[in-house]
Design a protein around this nucleic acid. Structure first.
Length: 526
RNA sequence: GCCCCCAUCGUCUAGAGGACUAGGAUACCACCCUUUCAAGGUGGAGACAGGGGUUCGAAUCCCCUUGGGGGCACCA
């Protein structure tokens, strides 16, 4: 049979550094069409987002088309709100699609559940061409077979029972209306050689391949059939998908060849690994940044809620498995689009580094216009119970901008501006190498200065520095009690700006409360 | 178990046989700056998994070993 010659279709091995277009020279002018095809079985995972991102980057780089296709062929695992999350997360990252749900397009519908007639048609076509067959085995029998094979030390799989069903038996089962699936008729000998842009040729012994189910008994296709049919019908030029699909790649190739369809260029993307380096990134794994045991963040929405900027996540994900030069790693969207090349995608799996993402997020936060930072901080302040507007925040931005790692850090740095503080205890108020009486004396003096100083940052700083000298204290010894008294924190934004924006009245009021605490402590120490 | 993929500092990576005393970033450490914390500056420690080939010459090409990962559903 023609498709037993599995090596056809490839003129030469491209190898690791093959030119992107050269291999399919005839198609150099052909439009690039790529797709991201998630299944609505859960929220968008950062691994999925990275796949989407690479596809999007390639589409934008080439002036091609980015398609969103929903692979909703598993009715059992369907999660109702996952589709909304996937679309919202993609848009949050800036990965707008040209064709797909909402957008529409000439090759729709873009939900596989609405394309069943196509899968049925090509399943029949495959049967007619002798490349597939109906299988009437029950799930129970299949389970039995698997168990049996396991016991005999064989790889789990189907025993091809129905492939060799006598014709009269087949007719009888059909007449009885026995439920059936359609299976791929994999050649029993020879090899299937597939081509990956980055890895070159990969050969599989047909003997090791399985007669996978193409069409389920509920009439829905499996991934294997649906992906091939849709990629062909939607005229996909490049398939970029996760590494884990390499195993079923030969099955897909067999379907393409049986249907005599030309294959797109395949690029398998490296896996994203858990920080432990053990296995795919998943929620189950735990990380402990400071001894704390917690769940990994894996969903795009979680990063958004944790105060990461979309541009930072975008940049980080873009450099996970793709490197432009080894020198540059901060890329604007435009730069990434301009510089993205398929050849520069790595094949080795990459560990997801939360530390590096956090650093990068800080870089992007520092680069934000103050007005913009203020605007983005508002929801995080509100979530912490602080009712503020961007205008309230704006004057305070210079105090915190270079300190924030995430937007969620905002409240911890700024809450005392917007709500009263708990009066700090003496042990927090008294700096190292100081005692309560001396701290009390210093803070009293500071109160007097602050009560009459002209209320601007420069004057406050000048007078307090002068005071420190008069008291024979180091700057920190005077400033720290003031900081703690007015902010309730040991760690807070720069003092003079803080005092200025807090206002004289509130600053003095908080200092007075701290003085009471210190008075008591001073008495007790004597 | 079988099949497939992968292998440079802890991590992300540069490296296309000679430009490698292996570069950058992050994380870490020290110092500087400094009112705390950051940010910034300077410096430091830190890698070609192992073994065979090929070659005048190997991080780079080939083979083996080891290690890691993925897959083996009427899931995607």
């Amino acid at each position: 049979m023609f498709w037993y010659n599995s090596v056809n279709g490839f003129s030469h091995s491209a190898g690791k550094r093959a030119p992107t277009f050269g291999r399919r020279g005839v198609h150099m002018a052909e439009e690039v069409r790529v797709r991201f095809a998630p299944s609505p079985t859960g929220y968008l995972h950062v691994g999925g987002a990275r796949t989407a991102l690479f596809n999007w980057l390639w589409a934008r780089h080439t002036g091609g088309t980015f398609i969103l296709r929903i692979e909703d062929t598993d009715r059992k695992r369907y999660v109702p709100d996952s589709l909304d999350d996937i679309m919202a997360s993609l848009r949050w990252l800036g990965l707008e699609w040209d064709e797909g749900p909402d957008a529409g397009g000439p090759y729709g519908p873009y939900f596989q559940s609405q394309r069943l007639e196509h899968y049925h048609r090509y399943a029949e076509e495959l049967i007619a061409r002798g490349a597939a067959y109906r299988c009437y085995c029950t799930p129970e029998r299949l389970a039995q077979v698997r168990e049996e094979r396991r016991r005999r030390g064989l790889p789990p799989g189907y025993d091809r029972h129905c492939r060799y069903l006598p014709e009269e038996e087949r007719a009888r089962l059909e007449a009885e209306g026995t439920p059936s699936v359609v299976r791929l008729k994999v050649p029993e000998t020879g090899q299937t050689v597939v081509h990956d842009l980055l890895r070159g040729e990969i050969a599989f012994d047909n003997q090791k391949l399985e007669d996978v189910v193409l069409l389920k008994s509920d009439g829905y296709p499996t991934y294997h059939l649906a992906v091939v049919v849709d990629d062909h019908l939607m005229r996909i030029s490049h398939v970029m998908r996760a590494d884990e699909w390499i195993s079923s790649f030969p099955l897909h190739a067999l379907i393409y060849r049986a249907l005599e369809w030309e294959m797109p260029v395949f690029v398998h993307l490296p896996m994203i690994l858990d920080p432990s380096g053990k296995g795919k990134l998943s929620k189950r794994k735990q990380r402990r940044p400071d001894g704390q045991v917690e769940e990994n963040m894996t969903m795009v929405r979680e990063f958004r809620e944790a105060g990461y900027l979309p541009e930072a996540l975008f940049n980080f994900l873009a450099t996970l498995g793709w490197a432009y030069s080894g020198e540059q790693e901060i890329f604007s969207v435009e730069e990434a689009v301009a510089k993205f090349e398929l050849e520069d995608i790595r094949t080795a799996p990459a560990v997801f580094s939360y530390e590096k993402l956090e650093w990068m997020n800080g870089v992007y936060i520092r680069a934000l216009a103050p007005e913009e930072l203020a605007r983005r901080l508002v929801p995080f302040m509100e979530r912490a119970g602080l009712r503020v507007t961007a205008d309230d925040l704006l004057p305070l931005i210079p105090l915190v901008q270079e300190r924030l790692k995430t937007l969620a850090d905002g409240p911890a740095y700024l809450d005392f501006f917007f709500q009263d503080i708990e009066t700090p205890s003496a042990d927090v108020l008294v700096p190292k190498k100081m005692d309560a009486p001396r701290t009390l004396e210093a803070l009293r003096a500071a109160r007097e200065v602050l009560a009459e100083v002209e209320w601007n940052e420069e004057a406050i700083e000048a007078r307090l520095r002068q005071l420190a000298g008069e008291l024979g204290l180091k700057a920190g010894q005077l400033f720290q009690p003031i900081r703690v008294a007015t902010t309730g924190k040991r760690v807070a934004p720069p003092l003079f700006g803080t005092l200025y924006h807090l206002g004289r009245e509130r600053a003095l009021e908080r200092i007075d409360r701290a003085l009471q605490v210190l008075e008591q402590a001073a008495v007790q120490e004597q």
